[in-house]
Design a protein around this nucleic acid. Structure first.
Lengths: 213, 213, 213, 213
DNA sequence: CTTTAAACGAGACGGTACGTCGGGTCTTACA
DNA sequence: TGTAAGACCCGACGTACCGTCTCGTTTAAAG
């Protein structure tokens, strides 16, 4: 960290195995997906990674932290979308999210988020995940505004929350049977949802006069 | 013998302790709230319930099942609401849910729901929880329709999904710091949300004249 | 005890099942022979005997007592021998004992005797078993004396002790492989032993002329 | 690998605690003597030894094996005797054995020998114990022969068997009441026994002149 | 015939130990 | 000093039996 351009004054002793980190993370996520949270074992991960337990404990303080990190490491990819229209962007965004949550790794991310909140142990996890989604949505909305689409700054955050929330519940309802729903159905569901919510996002659906306060 | 339809021919042997079930469930939820999921132990529960381990294992096959049951047993209470107006019903409904999720037991219900989906082991848990909420919402909407409020049958399910989804995400974001938000703020947040979504629920996007206030 | 002339004033209530005692003892010894001391279980015995656990506990206070009784019940048979000569009687006596000890039930008797001594719990077991053997030997010696064979009353007890002791050690050495030794070998071993010890049993160390061979 | 004759290529990993073995054995025998065979518990032994249960199970596969080993470990001491005369050697030998069997550990050795035979599980136990005694007796006899005392090679083994057998029965009869008999009585009993048997041990039936009394 | 009273089968009960397994720490020998 | 190996202490797991207890039923004698 902060080591200069040139090769950071190498510390003495045997250098850390370069690939250990990644091998452990890979083994960890595999174990997790295969055997679930209960079956997720430091011994098992170390064995599968071909690594000593101490090598694991040198990098992660305990089981839970490793579990969190290994899942997060796999769930980085929330790719940005840019179709040119706000509606299509939102549809793509929510479809991406639904697909993500229907994938084991994505669902694991949701699980961990919930667990993290519960254990109060890893508040940054929640924040991290939430931020990633917020940022993706923010980009879409910003671009829409720049294109001149009239995005209502008052409702904006709430609408996105509704969208993401509805997607999350849908994922929960579907379980993670990836087979239970195909891409076409995902797209259809998201389209309906966005079409319903979109008016609330635009200036003058003039919801203002309805607002009772 | 020869007793009719009722009273299912008592099985032989010493009958099960009538209060054991409840004592165990109570001890279990207490242990869970005090020591968390990791500290939740069959030995501990049995000890606290003043019961032998075998008495627990006679009723629940393993730790996880007991944990699920004990949480669900405490989260039954989704009281119905009836204020006389759809808007206020929805506000009350969502406020109830948010309050529920901000309570340790309520949040535990969310956790378990997610875990149940993940493990595929207890699909009825998800269904059970979801049904309870769906039913409460259904009642509110039915009553509104009976009063003559024009509820749009097309958007209905999706709007409720948005509402619940947004509440869930809000709960996740707030964590379960009960102190982080007071009842007034809860009510305010729910009101904003409902006021935004309500128009979508009413026939033909002519919300104005339906608004009961 | 002290009951009148006729039929012990029957106590009220349902009389005990007449055959239960025996069924339990039989089941017990079978379980013991099949599964060993550790696998010997009250539940198992009751199940095999087709009897409730309480029926067992009405008759025996605990597992160990039942085990002892069931073994002793099977090992009663120390049949008397009477061949007409002291030497042959002793050979028959020791052969009987060796055969007995090489049989599972007989060996179990030895085990229990040792355990009984160890636990101090059942002193009568030791005494009982010892007496049975002492009595059989006593008979043989008495008859010999009556026939005019000159039995030395001084060495008598010690010689018998040597005989039985040697037989016991032989049984221990052979293990309880019934197959390891046949009747002919048993007879031969006992004959050698008796022929060696017999002189010591006869008056005044004038063994030679008494030796029947 | 490639290391010379000595020092068996140390295996990797943390070496086993050097003193654990002994601490466990000591704790085990103490527990056994204090609480008997039934009260002998792996948990108890581990606790008393200040050691984790896994440390015990790393060394012994189960309760029974540990019990056997702990008793045998304490009963190694069959000290050799050498008084200069065969008669006195035999008296000392048998007195030692009787004293040994009247001691709790010694008696436990007898118990275990019997159990070992019964369970067929530990044949080496029987062999081990028997060998130790045989060897001690063998030494005594060899030395006598070397001194010129005429030991009859034909009866030798059988006489020793009688001696040991009689001692064993005597121990059984006395129970393990150490107080029931004192050293003087032990010596007297053994002397009688040896004096009776000694003639049988000497060359062809001319016992009289050798008898020291 | 009804009552009383014990024995019976079934099996739940509070305990306790089993043997296994995993967590997180520690201790070696090498690299 | 990092690493692989693996032993260490701890304590929970789920199982099995102990000896006790409660049931409802059965059996026989007494009233």
């Amino acid at each position: 960290m902060g080591d200069g351009v040139t090769a950071a004054r190498r510390s003495p002793g045997r250098p850390r195995r370069a690939d250990a980190e990644q091998r452990i993370l890979d083994a960890a996520i595999d174990e997790y997906l295969e055997r679930g949270a209960t079956g997720f074992t430091i011994d098992g991960v170390a064995r599968r990674a071909g690594v000593g337990k101490s090598t694991v404990y040198l990098r992660w303080p305990d089981r839970d932290t490793l579990l969190v990190d290994s899942v997060l490491a796999r769930s980085r990819a929330i790719e940005d979308v840019d179709t040119g229209s706000l509606r299509d962007d939102l549809i793509a965004l929510s479809a991406n999210m639904l697909r993500f949550l229907l994938d084991p790794v994505g669902f694991a991310t949701l699980r961990l988020t919930v667990e993290a909140v519960a254990s109060r142990a890893a508040p940054q996890v929640t924040a991290d995940v939430a931020d990633r989604h917020r940022r993706a949505a923010g980009l879409v909305l910003t671009r829409a505004a720049e294109r001149g689409e009239l995005v209502n700054p008052v409702t904006q955050a709430r609408v996105i929350e509704c969208l993401y929330g509805a997607i999350t519940l849908k994922a929960l309802a579907l379980g993670l049977e990836a087979d239970a729903i195909n891409d076409v159905e995902i797209a259809a569901a998201c389209t309906e949802l966005v079409d319903m919510l979109l008016p609330l996002l635009l200036e003058h659906g003039r919801p203002a006069q309805d607002s009772t306060r």
